[in-house]
Nucleic acid binder design. Sequence first.
DNA 1: CTGAAAGCGCTAACAT
DNA 2: ATGTTAGCGCTTTCAG
Lengths: 358, 358
Amino acid sequence: MSGEQHHPTLHDVARAAGVSVSTTSRALGNYGRISQRTRAHIRWIADELGYRPNVIARSMITGKTQSLGVVCADLSSPFFAEALRGVSDLAKERGYSILIVNTDEDLKAEQDAITLLRDKLVDGVIVAPADVQCVEHLARLQRDGRPVVLLDRTSHALEADSVTVDDVAAVARATSHLLDAGHRRIGIVTELRTARESNWLALLTGGVGRTALNPSSRRLLGYIQAHQQHGVEIDPDLVARTGDTTVASALAAAREMIESSSPTAVMSVDNTTSVGAFSAIRELGLSVPADVSFVAFDNLDWTTLVTPPLTVVEQPVYEIGRRAATALTDRLAGERDGAGEEILLETRFVERDSVAAV
Amino acid sequence: MSGEQHHPTLHDVARAAGVSVSTTSRALGNYGRISQRTRAHIRWIADELGYRPNVIARSMITGKTQSLGVVCADLSSPFFAEALRGVSDLAKERGYSILIVNTDEDLKAEQDAITLLRDKLVDGVIVAPADVQCVEHLARLQRDGRPVVLLDRTSHALEADSVTVDDVAAVARATSHLLDAGHRRIGIVTELRTARESNWLALLTGGVGRTALNPSSRRLLGYIQAHQQHGVEIDPDLVARTGDTTVASALAAAREMIESSSPTAVMSVDNTTSVGAFSAIRELGLSVPADVSFVAFDNLDWTTLVTPPLTVVEQPVYEIGRRAATALTDRLAGERDGAGEEILLETRFVERDSVAAV
DNA sequence: CTGAAAGCGCTAACAT
DNA sequence: ATGTTAGCGCTTTCAG
């Protein structure tokens, strides 16, 4: 069982080839001056012996591991799973492997994750920070020479590349669509976790920079801006807030909001709130779009399977991950310098049959 | 930008504490004989200095990295994403990190993945092999002293722990339910990729061991066995096969099968085929369960969101991943010896409203 | 163009 | 109970 056969080392290859370790290293590492003949010869021998470099030993010297850390809230959520796939594909193409850590949006877990990843000497990190204001641990990592790319979020407190979609515009667009259809009581179910975020009314006065916000807040901002542009007052009771990321909470919040405030249309801000809101509508026996119009967020399979097919805001999830990995590996390759860039990806408003004019 | 501050090493801590490196190593590593006082002192100093062990250096000596490799077809599929979450959670609890590689069910990609993971010196690997017959690369890894655990699949060709559900029984149960309801023409949409699998009629004769099969074949076997038990002949045209794992293919195969063979009930074998089959039914304007009954596989959110809510076969996906990680880390800890064990998890048949009697 | 030798930071004999 | 020392396998000056 525990054969643990001895793997050939550089030394073994060197001896077999009748040259020194350093020459062997150069031949295999493809650097330095070395004659074509010896290089070919050494390579051949290495192959014969089934030589595999010990990357650990290499990392010890270079301080690099050819691996990227990815820290996200929950790798099993459709959003992160798909984004991660984008990261993973690009990483593989460029010869990096990925270390994934879940945080469940918990700041402490995130800090621990960063420590772990630093300990493992990942070359860089892609992270969807739990709180865009608390990023000191990320800044430290940067100072350490490990670049950081923000995924799905941006932060004023950090000078780093970020990849997001224009949430504000996307939701404003969807909201306008509803407003244009004559809706005046549009409910929205969103997720505001921190106390700071809960004070969402501050958004109404425009006192908050949009990039300093988490996605759900930014999306709520889009909702607000559209209303303001259309000169429509917002009834605060139409904003259903859930404190965590579960479908159950979203459902409860949506249900209560709909029952007590009778909106003529409902929107959501991500897959979880979409499922919760749609479930609430179903539970209440409301018919879409006859009784209430509905616009979901994220163009997942299920939105076309339900009755009626849902009008949705689509974001390029796979591409978000892919671009984040691109930015990170570009920096690692020295092909990207200077200030952090805010990479903004396009969303798409997909009209289907869940919206009616009132 | 490139501060790259010098991190304190064992040496630095030792000097600051006025002791030797080995004593420091013992104090921090918590092994060997050492007085409480010096240990406490050293720890204190280490903390002061913000010392972090260089795990790479440690790995070089121990040959262990405290990390697990996970190789799956597609981390963005609901099944793997959820299973991975189970793996990830357990790994974290036990102090392991995870390296994830996608293969898209491609054998070559899988072999490369194993090589990569071996190079990275992962302590063990969890894998959903693309082909349960071609597992020589996995066997080699085992001989190398890196245990392997099979996820969602078993293999006769490999002596390893595996974690699966009893697919055969689960689907037989669902099929019997349909048969009992009077259905005699039950369509099934399944995924049979390899030529070997495509010869599914061999399953009818019982000439194939059930554990030598991929999940979709095993599930098809359950379908067959139920029919045989009920003495109902199977019309081969009722078996819709898709050659890849896309929804589009599943949809096309399902649609064609339904149109040409008019089943009174339809089943699927995983999330992809469930989405495909349900879409096909919708596209054909068939009403569930009035025109056709439907049983889906995997109890995902969307199955309760559609109309009507679907009767499904539920498998404990998160637990599958978690148990696989448990088995693997148990072995690594030496708490699990001997032959590979086939860990079989329970499924649940969830009755909702998509099945009618004929 | 090639070789010798010095470590990277740590663990684990071995010595005291 | 603590210190000394020899590497783990590799990269990388520095000589030749």
